[in-house]
């Protein structure tokens, strides 16, 4: 698999994502947000961080980076697109995923490990998990997923919700931690699977997400 990791000004999980992908033998390349062509890649990863300093709203400025037209084309071509944390925020602002990520319900930055339920085990991002209960790191100040009730009902009906917090740590609608688009090729999630792939760091629950993607 050839993967692109998009580097926005202010991305800070780009190298973690590169490290994780390379650990799985993926041919991964860092691609500037100013690039305009992603046709060489099978999968696109938008990493965590604070693109453009989170000015205006998290992800709101990154959405206008030149690369985003190529990301939309990749979506139209049905390619795998993964947005982690700030990447999720960018994908919602860009309209590739519904809803919006807002300031946590309780003030402050949340840096912790949280328990999650896999609420759809039949996606290209969750298939390899043998269990429905996993633990992943989170690190965000704006991770409260918000969508109106009609959108939440649609997400539930279409089984687009992949991960839910077992304890709602940030006030997200419907406990949502990660969703796909309706086609199922775009994933956005606040927790960080790329930070949970090595036993020496205490958590390997992120590995099955990468294995799921690579199994496709």
């Amino acid at each position: 698999m050839k993967a692109a990791v998009i580097q926005f000004p202010g991305s800070n999980c780009d190298m973690d994502m590169m490290h994780a992908l390379q650990d799985f033998g993926v041919d991964a390349t860092l691609v500037s947000h100013n690039a305009t062509d992603l046709s060489d890649y099978d999968a696109i990863f938008l990493p965590g961080g604070f693109s453009f300093g989170d000015y205006l709203r998290s992800g709101a400025i990154a959405r206008f980076s030149p690369i985003m037209d190529a990301v939309k084309q990749a979506d139209e071509a049905g390619k795998t697109i993964v947005g982690i944390c700030n990447g999720f925020q960018i994908l919602t602002e860009a309209g590739l995923l519904p809803g919006q990520l807002m300031q946590n319900e309780h003030p402050g930055f949340l840096c912790d490990e949280v328990k999650l339920n896999i609420t759809n085990a039949d996606t290209e991002f969750s298939r390899a998990y043998p269990t429905n209960e996993i633990t992943l790191p989170v690190a965000h100040g704006e991770g409260r997923y918000y969508a109106d009730q009609a959108t939440i009902a649609d997400l539930e009906k279409n089984q687009q919700i992949v991960f839910k917090y077992r304890t709602n740590v940030n006030g997200s609608s419907d406990d949502i931690a990660g969703i796909t688009n309706q086609k199922g090729n775009v994933l956005g999630m606040m927790p960080h699977p790329e930070r949970a792939i090595e036993a020496i760091l205490g958590n390997t629950d992120g590995r099955k997400l990468f294995e799921s993607i690579l199994d496709n």
Binding site: M102, H106, P107, Y146, G171
Partner: peptide, 11 residues
Amino acid sequence: QSVLDPQGEVI
């Protein structure tokens, strides 16, 4: 109106 504003609550 329907959206929680945590900053407003803290203020």
